[in-house]
């Protein structure tokens, strides 16, 4: 598998191969579990393992072929693209502490300030607007029971 370099994508060049390996491993485990644990053909019909075995074998065999012989060029992926995932994972982890609405508003403010380097009033305005919108539509109107957060619970 050869790698195509493009600006902003340098870095995790081994990733496409890793994806294929992941799919092969997933396919193999689905096929093995499907065959031995759930059963391929039960009482004159497909057992709970029939589709897992068919799909698992298909994915594993094609995946191995793809890994070994694929002439397709894969794009390399830069670590920069993973920033939103990491930042959002930290934010989601903080939801039990600060609550959903505040965590989301803070995410927007900090992202615009720190990553995008915009002015603080633009950041606060966007964060506050989005937070208020989420609160009004989801929490107040649609009655979605968002986590309130440890601090708010403590204050109560």
């Amino acid at each position: 598998m050869s790698i195509e370099k493009s600006p902003g994508r340098e870095g995790l060049s081994w990733l496409p191969a890793l994806v294929t390996i992941g799919i092969v491993l997933m396919g193999a485990s689905w096929a093995v579990l499907g065959y031995f644990k759930y059963g391929l053909w039960v009482n004159n019909g497909p057992g709970a393992g029939f589709f897992p075995v068919v799909a698992g074998l298909g994915a594993a065999v094609l995946g191995i072929y793809e890994f070994l012989f694929s002439p397709v060029k894969a794009k390399a992926v830069g670590t920069k693209s993973l920033w939103p995932a990491v930042a959002m994972a930290i934010t989601v982890a903080s939801i039990p502490l600060v609550g959903m609405v505040l965590a989301m508003a803070l995410f927007i403010v900090l992202w615009i300030l720190v990553i995008e380097r915009k002015t603080w009033h633009k950041a606060v305005l966007t964060g506050a607007g989005a937070g208020t919108g989420i609160y009004l539509v989801f929490a107040l109107w649609l009655k979605v029971p968002f986590p309130q957060g440890f601090f708010l619970e403590l204050m109560r």
């Binding site: 934010t91 989601v92 959903m100 995410f107 989801f138 649609l142």
Partner: peptide, 23 residues
């Protein structure tokens, strides 16, 4: 995009939570 990226990310999180109210 500077504003779109964080707002879409937040919409994704809130939308995913609202389906079953599950973290």
């Amino acid at each position: 995009p500077a504003f779109m990226i964080p707002v879409i990310a937040v919409v994704c999180v809130v939308g995913a939570y609202s389906v079953n109210n599950s973290m």
